[in-house]
Design a protein around this nucleic acid. Structure first.
Lengths: 238, 238
DNA sequence: GAGTGGTCTAGACCACTGG
DNA sequence: CAGTGGTCTAGACCACTCG
């Protein structure tokens, strides 16, 4: 699959846990045993196990072993860098994306600050609403550096921008910083969303960086109160 | 400080970045150089650098080096397993905790489900409100297994339960799972909080596990909409 | 080409849990 | 006590960036 030995071990074990071949409370084979099974060194096995631990699959307990966690909910893939398309797959609901505005702009002062951009930079601006079970409950406002993504079409935006960037352009997302707050609804929310009487909205501000640490996108994702849910898995000192 | 070599290297470098001795965009000494400086192996240095990367201090770029991230905001220590006491330290505002209810109970059906407890288990129940700048804006409802924490006093709850558990009892928190949603205010919110007209509230449900993977606490933290903020730093594939 | 980080190895010693 | 995971070492080869 992948070219990494530790990553393929991780994938394989994760799959076994996902499929219930190994169950919660079970104890994985010891690191020594696994290094024999996979014909690799113990350190390589440990990298795979650490990945499993970081992703909430197991808890390593000294002197005992690696316990599989009972995690139907635990590994809800909403945390971290998940795109709407991946998300809707997990939700398994009828979802649909509508592109309302699409084009190139020069950033206003607010956007200059958010994107650390210059006033004459070219920025893609995309306004989309997300429909879940027939209701428009999420408004996404995306701003992307043109110097990072030279071309973009309305069709790509209707599908998945991330898929295009990662699969087509071969760029790699490095990390992201999200901020969650609740704010009063704006006229824009009013215009594009089914407000359903709510006068506040959950705002997720997302700064996305590439592997070489350049900021390439700022997104404001506005969720209707009753449709917002976020799950986070955290380890001490991660 | 700590007994770990890689952890003390991590602490030292993190401190240098926090204090601005190394600035954003700077490149750290290479892994080979650091292993000479600290008289250790390269793998040990790499563990320290990976910790820095996971915590948003640096981005490692192959062929170039470890770039220090510009992260006044990036490392906002709200993500993950942070207690209110640690939080208020960072916020630097006038904060105060008031204990409204405190005692031992047997769990009702809802709590049995959340804590995976039996009806005759003994559970500590603590209801506290958090005051920030003179307003009660957070309501914390804590439920803790007595079999994990045999003794607890009102004084401890006024200070910090985590501090007591970790420092006094020497127990170690392993991991936690949080869920964020927005719900309608309850009578309890009404009773203990300064609602300020808001009829909805941000609810953070938190399941805390010890190092040996036992669930020992369930907390419901209810934040007034306008005072809620959450920051998350995420890396691809964590 | 020299230097960087990414992967991998085959050892070693330690601290901890269990019977 | 034997077995577990946690730390650490001193090498090796690779893919990548930059001048």
């Amino acid at each position: 699959m992948t070219t990494n030995k530790y990553d393929s071990i991780y994938q394989e074990l994760a799959k076994k846990i996902d499929q219930g071949i190994v169950k919660a409370e079970d104890i994985l084979p010891s690191e020594n045993e696994l290094s024999l099974q996979y014909e690799t060194s113990r350190e390589t096995v440990r990298k795979a196990l650490n990945l499993l631990a970081q992703n909430g699959y197991i808890q390593k307990i000294r002197g005992k072993g690696s316990v599989v966690l009972n995690v139907e909910k635990m590994r809800f893939p909403v945390s971290g860098l998940v795109s709407f398309k991946e998300l809707s797959k997990t939700l398994g609901r009828r979802t649909c994306t509508k592109v309302h505005e699409f084009g190139l702009i020069h950033p206003d002062p607010y956007l200059c600050k958010q994107l650390k951009a210059e006033p004459d930079d070219e920025i893609w601006r995309i306004i989309r609403s997300r429909e879940i079970n027939g209701e428009h409950v999420i408004l996404d406002k995306d701003y992307i550096y043109r110097k990072c993504v030279p071309m973009l079409t309305q069709e790509i935006c209707e599908n998945s921008i991330y898929e295009y960037i990662e699969d087509e352009l071969g760029m790699k997302i490095g990390f992201a910083q999200k901020e969650f707050v609740v704010e009063a609804c704006t006229d824009e929310d009013e215009k594009y969303l089914d407000r359903n009487g709510f006068d506040h909205i959950v705002v997720v501000r997302n700064f996305v960086f590439l592997e070489d640490a350049t900021l390439f996108q700022y997104t404001e994702s506005r969720h209707r109160l009753d449709k917002f849910r976020f799950v986070d898995f955290a380890r001490r000192g991660r």
